[in-house]
Design a binder for these strands. Structure first.
Lengths: 256, 256
DNA sequence: CGGGCATTTGATCTAATTCAAAGCGAGTGG
DNA sequence: CCACTCGCTTTGAATTAGATCAAATGCCCG
């Protein structure tokens, strides 16, 4: 099943998919309308029943609060039900870098597995809710449910490939190329979730974008202004609309 | 078991550990003298026997040749027995970026899991040998052998954390800081493998270092010259000796 | 309505790139 | 064994993308 729903409230990045009855929260993976985005993609109904044991609860995080901090003990992965996060890594000398932005259906916490404690902070950029997935139990269940194991591997590998792309961006691209690639990546992910591929309501500041892209906030702002002047996009505060996707894509070409 | 062996031929990065009889190659994980570095770290003898089924063979790769290319079908992970690799990711427009350097005991191929084909090239920087580990079989065995499953997860998570560090480097650090961090990282890994923590024989060109660090080869060269002038290291071609580790470490401080 | 961020825009300044040239070393073939 | 490439590395000089410093504007929220 491939999601192709497109709606007009694309700037509301927090809406779950197909929410005809948005306030009825699924209490298990098997009844969750996000499962086609999340960990149990493509599982059979029987497999889903087993995976239901995985879900140990939900957690709400207010805007600005941390889901976890660097140094915290690692016990769970988290699947985002709604809301938008950033992850940041700190250096010894206090410098801090945004290492990713995560949205609905994406998994947080993979960094904690190696050393049994987290190596980055996960901060909610808007009020959010996550499913709490105890990693220990996940190991047990994925020993029985073949395709859960596959999906765990895939999700980790996906994150490795994503960071390859970021390295490419940080290592090779100029400021405007980075910003173009960033916008297109965000839109692609929103599109995959059934939102418009032409509009975004950004949840992060120019400074956070700059930190992620390895450039200063002023440079981000100037690049936006340039894009507007060139008719590539329109910008109203944090609301971005794509006007000329082809040229934007050409700019961002360096992304593999 | 923690390896602390230090020897004087540190610049020979290809030597396996504890090679009193270097030409007797182990034909299984359970008899491999690298196992404490590799996938089956810390397994009991019984577990090791099961894991022996994992090893489907060895492959030799000549200097300059590829272990796999971007686009190749993914079937196996590879554990490096000896030799030194780089992985490179290509962009649409031809630009290429070195995304990592891998040495003895490290695992290659994790990027291929998500899409069932590789997304980077793995090139040997010197004659090398790898263990071929069919990933399908690895899934099966790790359903029985608990700690193999744990180690697979850890290795993937370790790679995710590594790339967080690279992002930090590319996003926040100046050229000399990057090079200092790079040298120290290399030495740390060599030290973990029983080699000297003060000397390296680099296997890559200035251009490849620059590509990895997101700077030009001339900048790499100038940074080396500056380090020599400041008495931090000595450089004879690709042979690097640390003279003042503390100051080098201070320079690289931004690494988390 | 006022205060505090976030953003934009302008004017310098600088680290690193780019372009250019020379030096060095390892290997090859005469 | 020496001379000769060819690729790698170093170093210099000029150029530039982006950083930094500074100020004005806009906007949200109490």
């Amino acid at each position: 099943m491939r999601l192709t729903l497109v709606n007009n409230w694309a700037f509301v990045t927090t809406l779950p998919l197909m929410t005809s009855t948005p306030h009825i929260h699924a209490s298990s993976c098997s009844t969750c309308n996000l499962r086609e985005l999340c960990l149990p993609v493509g599982l059979t109904p029987e497999e889903l029943n087993k995976v239901d044991e995985l879900l140990s609860g939900r957690r709400r995080i207010k805007r600005g609060d941390a889901l976890f901090h660097s140094g915290d003990a690692f016990n769970n992965l988290y699947a985002i039900r709604f809301g938008f996060f950033k992850t940041t890594t700190a250096a010894l000398d206090g410098r801090e870098q945004v290492t990713g932005f995560q949205m609905i259906g994406e998994i947080l916490g993979l960094d904690g597995i190696v050393h049994n404690h987290h190596t980055c902070d996960a901060i909610a950029l808007e009020d959010a809710e996550v499913c709490v997935l105890p990693f220990e139990r996940m190991g047990e269940i994925s020993r029985e449910v073949n395709s859960l194991q596959t999906n765990v591997h895939r999700i980790m590998s996906r994150e490795i490939v994503r960071t390859q792309g970021v390295m490419m961006m940080l290592g090779n691209m100029r400021a405007e190329e980075r910003l173009a690639a960033f916008i297109l990546n965000l839109l692609q992910r929103l599109h995959d979730r059934g939102f418009s591929a032409r509009e975004v309501q950004l949840r992060m500041t120019r400074e956070e974008i700059g930190s992620y892209l390895g450039i200063q906030l002023e440079t981000v702002s100037r690049a936006f202004s340039r894009f507007v002047a060139d008719g590539l996009i329109s910008v109203k505060q944090r609301h971005i609309t794509i006007l000329d996707e082809d040229r934007l894509r050409a700019l961002a070409q360096a992304t593999a």
